[in-house]
Design a protein around this nucleic acid. Structure first.
Lengths: 327, 327
DNA sequence: TTGAGCCATGCAACCGGTTGCATGTCAAAC
DNA sequence: GTTTGACATGCAACCGGTTGCATGGCTCAA
């Protein structure tokens, strides 16, 4: 047993206040059971001693630890930080602590993280999970799980539905006279990528546009960069990228080849994570990832209180944000 | 007590294997104390029952929980995600879990977070902490604390030393003929801001440049945006910003006024977090925040094993990265 | 054959809270 | 003045592990 100096326990407070440990416990968790004076006295003593209830001990006896885990594929991808922050804030409001895991897009690492977290949290939120469906369902039997941007029946999930944004983008491009467009794919295991790609495909068909799909690559920025040759060869005049980071890769690639945007080529991003921080400001599709984080946490609370259907499926709508990379 | 179905305890394994609970415990934590056959038998039984040691219970009795906390002022500030990721990876390598806290630049919220975490972690890493020095020292008595970009004697700390990068930048600008430069400040409680500002001040003096310091504002982007009028009024020809986000605010403000960069005005950022994702690519000062995260975690391990001096103070050097926003 | 010593395992206390039940006190009701 | 009951507080078990010490069986040497 590693003793830490300065750690005040419930027994010390009890002794100092001349009451039983249980009264101290109640003063903090069920004050209505005690006389207001007793509560006040105990709290005063606790305060001067600097007592803080030990969450670990509390968790052991109650089985509730007020911890949540949030696992994302890549913290450094600008799509996630706002989501993380929102989730954090929502958890904070209920006195919950959140573990953060970074799976690095690797299903086995994600699995390891879940295993490590699951024993010390009440529930897990998996963002853009790359885990096999069966695995998710297995874990969901042990602890409440909420998914973001992953669609598994029977597990509460929040989906940012880029389809209508994508559809809107394709229509917009068709109206502006583009005939041949490209879609530059994201990670192959990604639900978002599938959903975006198929929305583009369908909309392009409806609008009578020719579509070139550039297959998935490594990390987003490089994916965009290396896609440039192919989308130019394919004779397209505009590229819709899986996300904003990919779009920036494309912009960088175009710049290298001396092609100006939007005069020489148009680019549309997705997620609206870089705002108009860049020049020219990127035309993109909104995503409000922070709302997704917030909503996921509140779904988690529902699950923890066992209210709400297991099969909750929230779709967050998106829309085209026209800035200056399209013509 | 909330029971979770399917939770197997050490007692159940002990009973099924016909041994005492302590033997089961030893089979997992100190197998050398038992016969290899006993260990094998216990593990086999544990396996079929699906036993997983309860980390909470273990933590309570050993006082060690293999958890770390990392608190940052703002997850969404692009400076932090790479640091968070690196810290995460380093923790992961030692089977540690990390709690993430977002203080929102608010000292009292940061304090609350520390209080909430401190009971369930072995140590805390505070990045750009806004806590009063005394408070930090108090907490440091309860648990090992490692600071990033905050310089408190007696507490191990990792400092990204932007001074030489800043000095280099000022010299570079002087050589290019600038006479009057501006420094646009960051958060007032920030060690980084103090250190950057004083480096600029000293270097400007040495180079014989006139310096206008624009005081601290609200959030970074707006700070830059709203500083533009003043830095133009002050007659400067270049602004060095506290960080890249501020620099982007300045760029946006200049754009609004129809001033082109770098012909009409020059801008230098700091931290190099947006890389050359933007156009024109930003001249900035490197910072390698991920190294800071990694180093902080390894300092933490040192502290947990009680090796290394309490007063470790690591300086990470920086340098000017010239891109296209300066002339 | 017996005693010393080693080693595998068991026993029980402990970590720091929570909680069902027992107890004691005091006031209202009879 | 006694009974009843409500309410504040204490007692002790429990959560699920870990660990110092006790125990008992076995080996080996005298």
């Amino acid at each position: 047993m590693v003793k830490r100096k300065g750690t005040v326990t419930i027994s010390q407070v009890a002794q100092a206040a001349g009451v039983n440990r249980s009264s101290v416990s109640r003063a903090f968790t069920k004050p209505y059971m005690l006389t207001p004076e007793t509560v006040a006295r105990i709290k005063a003593v606790a305060d001067t001693l600097g007592y803080v209830p030990n969450r670990t001990a509390r968790a052991l006896s109650t089985g509730r630890n007020s911890n949540l885990a949030l696992i994302v594929p890549d913290v450094a991808n600008p799509f996630f930080p706002p989501m993380i922050r929102a989730a954090q804030d929502a958890a904070d409001a209920q006195d919950y602590c959140v573990f953060l895991g970074n799976s690095n897009e690797d299903p086995s690492k994600e699995d390891r993280l879940v295993g490590r977290f699951i024993g010390q949290v009440e529930g897990l939120i998996l963002a853009s999970s790359r885990l096999p469906e069966k695995r998710i369902l297995d874990y969901a039997e042990q602890r409440p799980i909420v998914l973001i941007n992953r669609d598994v029946a029977g597990v509460p999930r929040v989906l940012i539905d880029s389809s209508n944004g994508m559809t809107e983008a394709v229509r917009f491009l068709a109206e502006r006279g583009h005939k041949k467009i490209a879609y530059v794919s994201g990670p192959s295991g990604s639900w978002s990528n599938k959903s975006r790609r198929s929305a583009v495909r369908k909309a392009a068909q409806q609008a009578g546009l020719e579509l070139y799909v550039c297959p998935a690559q490594v990390s987003s920025f490089e994916a965009g960069l290396s896609a440039v040759d192919r989308i130019l060869d394919a004779g397209t005049t505009v590229a819709i990228a899986f996300d904003d980071v990919t779009a920036h890769g494309i912009l960088a690639g175009l710049e290298q080849r001396g092609i100006t945007v939007p005069d020489g080529f148009s680019v549309v991003g997705c997620d609206d994570v870089l705002g108009d921080l860049t020049h020219p400001p990127l035309t993109t599709i909104s995503s409000r990832s922070s709302e997704a984080g917030d909503l996921a946490v509140s779904l988690m609370y529902d699950a923890l209180r066992s209210v709400g259907l297991k099969d909750a499926r929230y779709l967050l709508q998106t829309e085209l944000v026209v800035r200056q990379t399209t013509k």
